Amino acid sequence: MTIATRRAQARALFDAGVAAADPVAATTRALVQSPVPATLIIAVGKAARGMAQAAMAACPNVPCLIVTNDENAAPLAGAQVMAAGHPVPDERGARAADMVIAALEGVGAGDHVLVLVSGGGSALLPAPVQGVSLADKAAMNNLLLASGADIMQMNLVRQQLSRLKGGGLLRIAAPASVTALILSDVMGDDLRAVASGPTAAPLGTKAQACNILQSFDIWEKCPRSVRDHLSGVDTATDIPRADNHLIGANPISLRAMAALVPDAHVIADPIEGDVAAAARVICDAAAPGITLWGGETTVHLRGTGRGGRNQELALRIALEARARGWTAGWVCLQGGTDGRDGPTDAAGGLVDSGTLGRIDNVAALLANNDSYAALEQAGDLLITGATGTNVADLGVLIRP
């Protein structure tokens, strides 16, 4: 089998994983199994438009507000589609959040709100608490993204700075009934963390948020308004009840990939943590044949380059393979299921045994967090375009 054939096979497996998280199909199945008498539909996240399309077919003539990222913000008849900034919140997201809050404040005891939640919703729907500006919240997002904190830690902090996150949406919608269909991009599928849990209890307290920021040595870099708010007294954590349903997740997509190659080795535990350590874990597990995994790693930003966790992980796997003296002919794909890795147009990287030979000074590029430039030089960027879904990251390694 040639490298070109293996690269095509890796891409086909990744595409199967993305297809298994199709938001239209997942939402349709959920509403067929458990119909919802919706009087208002709120959809937020990278998969919001697809989920809303299915919900509107099941609940015709119901008002629908959609907040999603630019790549997925195509018009949808009968719905109001709003694009917002991701991964850093912007004014468009703040205006969209105001419109969502106004719609929720207009429902009553006889109403039923159908909330469609997917990854990315945390940044897309910023509604800062009183005293914290949008600029301060955007600054916090940048600090968190560069800190090396994992998604649970970041979302715990974000919840404490938002009127909608950590069950805030439920408080605003009360006393209306709320059903949420959730497409998870979080390892372990803790619904409190997906889009920072608008229909779930908060992950923690202000004090815990302070501890996280201090542990990553960014507390003093936080805006004063944020430090003042997090240093205050915690509010009650009780929230109204919601009927939450998980309809798509990383393990589901991983199983769909594995179904295509029954003899593949599937890494059981999600691949998480620092990308350098993650590369070693993957290569330790990868015997000859096909190895599959899912997860969501972190990158500690030290340089000024462009890239993302998937691009950097792909390069670090190439470095590990070379250090281990692997036989020529191996191929590895590492990609984000949303089609966008960091602030770039790439989903990740598709590398092989010849990748490093096509890059000038890969060590310097990685030291500057410039994985995009390195993979672009090698011709190994994974470009998929926006997929309309988001269930974290998937990986494929094929060894002869």
Score class of each variant (00 low, 15 high):
residue 381 L to D: 07
residue 83 A to Y: 03
residue 251 P to G: 13
residue 283 C to T: 13
residue 292 L to P: 05
residue 41 I to W: 03
residue 190 D to L: 07
residue 362 V to Y: 04
residue 67 V to G: 04
residue 170 L to F: 11
residue 246 L to G: 01
residue 198 P to Q: 09
residue 213 L to E: 04
residue 244 N to W: 06
residue 161 L to N: 05
residue 193 A to I: 07
residue 204 G to E: 04
residue 376 E to L: 15
residue 163 R to S: 05
residue 194 V to Y: 00
residue 311 Q to E: 15
residue 246 L to P: 01
residue 378 A to T: 12
residue 385 G to S: 12
residue 74 A to M: 14
residue 79 A to Y: 03
residue 145 L to T: 01
residue 157 V to R: 00
residue 310 N to Y: 05
residue 195 A to Y: 05
residue 198 P to W: 04
residue 82 M to N: 11
residue 8 A to E: 14
residue 89 P to D: 01
residue 341 D to N: 10
residue 307 G to W: 08
residue 323 A to L: 12
residue 278 A to T: 01
residue 344 T to I: 14
residue 114 L to E: 07
residue 346 A to K: 11
residue 197 G to W: 01
residue 183 L to G: 01
residue 39 T to E: 01
residue 200 A to T: 00
residue 185 D to S: 11
residue 48 A to K: 05
residue 112 H to I: 11
residue 365 L to N: 07
residue 224 R to T: 14
residue 346 A to E: 13
residue 60 P to D: 01
residue 107 V to A: 06
residue 367 A to S: 11
residue 273 G to T: 05
residue 31 L to I: 06
residue 301 L to S: 03
residue 223 P to W: 03
residue 210 C to R: 13
residue 210 C to A: 09
residue 47 A to K: 01
residue 284 D to Y: 02
residue 66 I to M: 00
residue 395 G to K: 05
residue 346 A to I: 14
residue 29 R to I: 08
residue 289 G to C: 04
residue 64 C to F: 02
residue 158 R to C: 06
residue 138 A to P: 00
residue 39 T to G: 08
residue 48 A to G: 05
residue 85 G to M: 06
residue 69 N to W: 09
residue 268 A to T: 13
residue 303 G to R: 06
residue 156 L to N: 00
residue 250 N to S: 15
residue 20 A to H: 02
residue 149 A to T: 06
residue 271 I to N: 02
residue 264 A to L: 09
residue 397 L to A: 08
residue 77 A to Y: 10
residue 58 A to K: 06
residue 388 G to Q: 12
residue 18 V to I: 14
residue 234 D to C: 10
residue 322 R to K: 15
residue 181 L to D: 01
residue 230 L to Q: 00
residue 344 T to L: 12
residue 318 A to C: 12
residue 228 D to L: 13
residue 319 L to S: 10
residue 292 L to T: 08
residue 346 A to H: 13
residue 241 R to D: 14
residue 127 A to G: 03
residue 130 Q to S: 15
residue 246 L to R: 00
residue 269 D to N: 13
residue 124 L to S: 00
residue 84 A to I: 05
residue 61 N to W: 01
residue 244 N to I: 07
residue 44 V to L: 03
residue 179 T to G: 10
residue 400 P to V: 11
residue 357 G to T: 09
residue 281 V to S: 11
residue 164 L to E: 07
residue 100 V to L: 12
residue 384 T to I: 13
residue 123 A to K: 04
residue 87 P to L: 02
residue 66 I to H: 00
residue 301 L to F: 05
residue 116 L to D: 05
residue 193 A to D: 02
residue 393 D to C: 15
residue 45 G to E: 03
residue 329 G to S: 14
residue 266 V to H: 02
residue 106 G to M: 10
residue 194 V to R: 04
residue 300 H to C: 06
residue 133 S to E: 07
residue 178 V to L: 07
residue 181 L to A: 09
residue 187 M to P: 09
residue 307 G to P: 08
residue 34 S to Y: 10
residue 192 R to N: 06
residue 1 M to S: 15
residue 213 L to F: 04
residue 46 K to R: 11
residue 198 P to C: 08
residue 299 V to A: 02
residue 352 D to Q: 13
residue 233 V to D: 09
residue 390 N to Q: 13
residue 78 G to W: 11
residue 21 A to T: 11
residue 50 G to F: 07
residue 67 V to H: 00
residue 380 D to I: 14
residue 6 R to L: 09
residue 67 V to S: 04
residue 380 D to C: 15
residue 200 A to H: 03
